[in-house]
Structure formats: structure tokens, C-alpha cells
Design a protein around this nucleic acid. Structure first.
Lengths: 339, 339
DNA sequence: AGTGGCCTTCGAAACGTTTCGCCAAAGGGG
DNA sequence: CCCCTTTGGCGAAACGTTTCGAAGGCCACT
């Protein structure tokens, strides 16, 4: 049988109230502290957090809802958020929504039923209605990577991120640049495409042609097909920017299959492991994923303590352009044209 | 204020016992069912799992302890285990032990304090004492990937896995084969090295020389350094087997930097994403990760229902050899020797 | 009509904590 | 030396469920 306060009371003669006080950092006299510690050690006692949660109305548990788990971005988020929250005594219940808005809504209900004290979410899409059960119960929510109106959010400066890639390419002499990005149905892709359009206009004076930024499926396959589509245009781009990790990976695969004189310059997004594997070393826009996670964790902890401003907070972090080997971004002489 | 049974009682006139019965699938008359459903909908009622857990002594929560989160293997495990257990109503608390045995022990205590009903663990090392708090409270534990004496375990047939790689290589004409594996301090590496040794002897009649299977650090760096060490031996292997994903990745990077005539044949371990990126298509031993996770989840669910045999269960799954492009495993003419 | 058995419902007592209000003893200032 | 405040401790009442034993209603069978 597992020990409870009652067993400690039996061994120490103290009241439940005093024992509770001890376990909650209240004032207890030295000799009594020792009595409790001794009894607890003998009993292998451990506080029952379920009972505690019932009475105190804090389960000391938070939920993390991910659009998918299988990405370096998301595992890093989980890992960091979990680490920080466990320090603060919170358990982290993880839920993978498998890219499905419906199951995302279901998962939020599930978590609310589990009485989580807060939620961190990397949302599937734009619709925020799935958070209603949380709002209704005043469970604080922090969104990562996607800006959610009315919700605390931690995001990167997507426009500046893409602009930094475009700038490197135009500085290297490129005038026709393609973008591999997903459809405008998610905040992230919308921002990145808009950032691309603005940056190209600012640097070349012209808006990019529509076929240079047609949406692709956001996946490795999408990146592969997208790059091939771009290089087969009648006026192909001399450089391509990828707006996400999967697209970068797919585009890199397509690159590998091309002769080196046909390869456009390529600026990818976000994956460091990739960078270690590919030679020549690729040029990448990298997100401060750890920081994104930590900021989200801190923000949530604030909310859990009832702190922070009344209105929703938005934290915007900067990205870094990791410049790779020259050949990955410089304008190549157009061999075919010289023939 | 959040609704409780008492609110439903107020609206329906039924007793708490009946309402409880309704929510636990007991027999309740049709009209009363409807009354409850109506009231619950109006109140946006949701069962409080914390209170339920206190009384029923099941928190409907399990813990997953990982040696690290940042690997495809582990994220797949988590994702599948979580999916299956959520179907059964369990929440999954995740804990990353960051490769540290001490923090792994701490994490188990933490989970026990959170009153988890069961634990899935991908252990850091061999020592099983960190599970003591769980055993002491009869919390069932299922280990994945590492065989733990006295604990239900789901593992792959490590010896056969490596043997299949060795067989392909010897069949292709190789007689000197190197192994990149970690130290014998973990079950997995011990088995894979033993499997290698046995398979080489069975196929060539000789034990491999020690310098062909010296332990490396289990990491990308270790794989990189290890491959370079092997090819600089006075009698270098013509083929190398990698016993783990990180080692494979590192070895691939080292491969990429070599002239194609110097590259040994390479059989890697376990990563499919890698396989999509690298050309020529690599040869890999792949684990049935999904199945590993599902078997573990089912086993744990059995234990949670008090089912299954009295003694610990060990489930051993087979791996598959994914044969890549010929050039990755065939014996090359030794160019240097012919000069 | 009486008896036995099932089905449904009920009241009340848990489950293991926290918290509220109260009390006694100790400490400090005038 | 008295009064006031602070400190440490206590009993009892929650928190929102589940569960146990009992009881009432209904039906079928003698």
C-alpha cells in the first residue's frame, strides 16, 4: 500500500494540516520537520499529485499540441518546453495532431478533460476555434510559429527571414529568383511569400513573376517537384529560396540529380543536421528554435502564475542567415546560353 | 465556474451515483440518459479526470522516458505510443533524460509523483535501478530497444540485423569488413558488436581484427572520425557496417568527402529520410520502428488491464535490409593496388 | 396473491490532499 | 507586567468523483 499523510501522522503525531504545510514550504519547527522527513523516508512517501490537484485546482500538468511530431523543429520545441516546465514542476502531456485540424480540436478537448493548467500549441492551420474549450475554462494558451489573434504567440520574423535570403542572392548578382513555399492557408507561408514578394520588389524594382512563387505541397515531394518545375520554366530562375525544411530537403534531392552547371543557387530553411550532411555546405535561413521554445515556456509560466499583461503578447524573434559554400549562392555563368 | 456532477444533479434531479454510472457506461434508463446529455451540453460539462483519478486510483496517464528526444527513432516511438494510448483514453507525459542516467532516475520519480499508471522507457544505459520507484508501486514498465532483465521489453533482433548486413557484404565479395559501433556499455551496442563478430566468423571463418570494431563515440562526429580511422588502417576494410543512425550519418559525411575510388562499401542503420537524400541510394538496415512502438503500447495496455503472463515478456522483432544502389555494397577493384 | 430476482436509483462514505478559522504559546514594546 | 502581534499547530470542511450496500419497482413464475 502506498503511504499517505495519515501514515505520517501515525508516525509523527502531527496533524495533517502541519504535514501539508511542510510539503508546501510553510513554517514548521525544526524538530517537527525532522520527524516528518524521517517518517517520509521510512515510508518511501511521495506526495500524491492527483489529490493535490483536486483540492488546489492545479493539476501541475500542461499540454503540448503539435501539428506533427516528426520534424526537428517540433521535437526541439517539445524537448525545450518540457525541460523548462519540468523544472517548474509541471508534467508535459504531448499530443500529435497529425496535420489534421479535426483531430487537433479533439486533442484540445482531451487535454482540457485532463485538467491541464496550460497549453502550448504549434497549430495546424489558421482557424483558432479549436481553442474554444481552453478559453472557456481560462486555460492559458501560447502558440508557437503561427501568430494567432487573441492568443499569446511566439514567432519568427518571417518576412525578414526571407528578405535576408533574397538580399544575399541579389547581392550575388541574381535577378530571377524562385520561391518554393506552401499555399497561403497558413500564417507562416503567407508571411514568407509576402516577404519574398516585397524583398524582390525592393531589390530589383519588379514583382516576381507568378510562376516563380506558385505554391507547392509542403513536403519533401513538393520540394523535389517544385525545383524541377522551376528549372524547366522557359525563363528559369538562377536561384531558389525554400521556405521550409521539407521543401529544402526535396529541393536538395532534386539538386543532387542535376549536373552542376544546371543547378540554381539554393537557399534553404532551417535544418542543421542537413547542413552537416550536404557538401558543398548549404546556405540556410535558421530559426532560433531553442529560443522560440524557451520564450514560449516562460510566457506560459508567467500566465500560469497569473502574471503578464492583460492583452495577448506577441514575441517576434530574428532568424540568422548561415552562409554556406560560395557555390550555393553565387550566380553561375549561363553555360547553355554561351553555346 | 466549471460545471460538476452537482450542476447536472440540479438540472436533472438525478443522484450523483446515477450520473457517475452514465459517464462510466453503466445502465441508465433512456429518459434519464437524455436528461443528462441535455444538461451536460448546456453546461459544457466535461468530466474532471483529476477527481476521477483520485477516487478510482487510475490517473489515466502514462509516462514516456526517452534517453533523448532528438532522433527519428524516438520521435516515431513517442508519436505511435501516444496515438495508441490516447485512443485508450490515456494521456502521455513525455520526459527527455538527455542521455543522463541520473536525470533518468529523477524523471521516473517525477512521473511516479504524477501518479502515472504505467511507463514506457527507452533507457539510457544498462542499470535498471532507476525503475525502483515504479516497481515499488507496482507501476508497469515496458522497455523499448533495450532488453531489461525483469521488465517487459520490446527489442529488435540485433544480432540478425547486423548479420544480414554482413551477409550482403560477404556475398558481394568483401572479406575485410569494419564495424562502427559504440562501446559495450549498452545492450544494443553489445548485441550488435557480438552479432558482427559472429557473422564475420561464420562467413569468413575468421574473427575480425580488433581494430576493425573498436568502439566509437555514438554520434555523428564518432561516425565521421570512425570511418576516417578505418580507411587509414594499413589493411583497411573494403566495407563498413554502421550500427546506429548517428554513426551512419557521420560515416556518410566522411564518405562524401572521399574520392569515389577510395570509398568503402557502406551499410548504414535505420534512417529513411537519409535514404531519400543521399545518392547513390544507400543500403540500410531498417528497424520496424512503428511496430516496436505499437507492440510496446499494446503490451503496456495489457498490463494496465492486469492482463498478460506473470513473468516479464520479451518481444523480438525482425529488421529489414533495404538494399540500395549496387555501388554502395559491391566490392570495388582496388585501384591503388593495380598501379 | 406471494415470492424471488433483476434492474435502476439512491444516500453516504470514501480517495489524499489543501485551506480556513481558531487557539495557545511565545516574543516584544511600552 | 500587561497588551498586542506573530508563530506554529490543530480540527474540520472542502475539492469532484467512484463505489458500496440498500432499497424500491417491476416482472415472471409458482
Amino acid at each position: 500500500m502506498v503511504a499517505t499523510y495519515k501514515d505520517i501522522r501515525r508516525l509523527t503525531g502531527l496533524s495533517l494540516a502541519t504535514i501539508s504545510k511542510y510539503y508546501n514550504g510553510g513554517n514548521v519547527l525544526g524538530p517537527n520537520r525532522e520527524l516528518i522527513e524521517e517518517a517520509a523516508a521510512g515510508l518511501d512517501y511521495q506526495v500524491n499529485n492527483v489529490a493535490r490537484g483536486l483540492r488546489s485546482r492545479r493539476s501541475m500538468t500542461i499540454g503540448v499540441v503539435l501539428d506533427q511530431l516528426n520534424s526537428t523543429f517540433n521535437t526541439t520545441i517539445v524537448s525545450r518546453v518540457e525541460e523548462r516546465l519540468r523544472e517548474a514542476g509541471y508534467g508535459t502531456i504531448i499530443c500529435d495532431a497529425r496535420q489534421d485540424a479535426h483531430s487537433q480540436a479533439e486533442v484540445v478537448r482531451f487535454l482540457i478533460g485532463k485538467m491541464v493548467d496550460g497549453i502550448v500549441v504549434v497549430p495546424v492551420g489558421d482557424d483558432t476555434s479549436f481553442l474554444k474549450p481552453a478559453r472557456h475554462r481560462d486555460v492559458p494558451v501560447v502558440a508557437i510559429d503561427r501568430l494567432m489573434p487573441g492568443t499569446d504567440s511566439v514567432v519568427i520574423d518571417n518576412r525578414a527571414a526571407i528578405a535576408s535570403a533574397v538580399q544575399l542572392l541579389t547581392d550575388s548578382g541574381h535577378t530571377t529568383i524562385g520561391l518554393l513555399a506552401g499555399p497561403d492557408t497558413t500564417y507562416t507561408m503567407r508571411e514568407r511569400r509576402a516577404g519574398f514578394r516585397d524583398a524582390v520588389r525592393a531589390r530589383t524594382g519588379l514583382l516576381p513573376r507568378v510562376e516563380l512563387l506558385t505554391p507547392e505541397e509542403v513536403s519533401i515531394e513538393g520540394g523535389y517537384a517544385g525545383l524541377r518545375r522551376l528549372i524547366h520554366l522557359s525563363a528559369p530562375p538562377t536561384a531558389v529560396v525554400c521556405a521550409n525544411y521539407g521543401l529544402t530537403l526535396g529541393a536538395s534531392i532534386a539538386q543532387n540529380e542535376l549536373g552542376s552547371d544546371l543547378r540554381p543557387a539554393l537557399v534553404g530553411f532551417d535544418n542543421l543536421e542537413l547542413a552537416r550532411l550536404i557538401r558543398p555546405r548549404p546556405t540556410l535561413v535558421t530559426q532560433p528554435i531553442d529560443k522560440l521554445a524557451l520564450e514560449a515556456a516562460e510566457l506560459l509560466l508567467q500566465r500560469l502564475n497569473g502574471e503578464g499583461p492583460d492583452e495577448p503578447v506577441t514575441i517576434i524573434l530574428d532568424t540568422t542567415l548561415m552562409v554556406g559554400h560560395e557555390s550555393t549562392y553565387q550566380l553561375k555563368p549561363r553555360v547553355r546560353m554561351q553555346r
